[in-house]
């Protein structure tokens, strides 16, 4: 069985930075969905009869 060639330091650092950016993107998307939900709920609640 052959093993893949070891990852260079440069490649490992680049992969780490890509993962950080991806994580930040995912967190931003979660926050975005939360904010959209709050705004849409607020708008709909304002239109409900008292």
């Amino acid at each position: 069985m052959t093993h893949p060639a070891p990852e260079s330091d440069e490649a490992a650092k680049a992969r780490g930075r890509r993962n950080v950016v991806l994580a930040l993107g995912l967190v931003a998307f979660v926050v975005l969905v939360f904010v959209i939900t709050v705004v849409r709920l607020g708008a709909n609640a304002a239109h409900q009869p008292l």
Partner: peptide, 10 residues
């Protein structure tokens, strides 16, 4: 040739 940077995806 070189590892992908996040800027490449941008």
């Amino acid at each position: 040739a070189t590892p992908a940077r996040w800027q490449d995806y941008v």
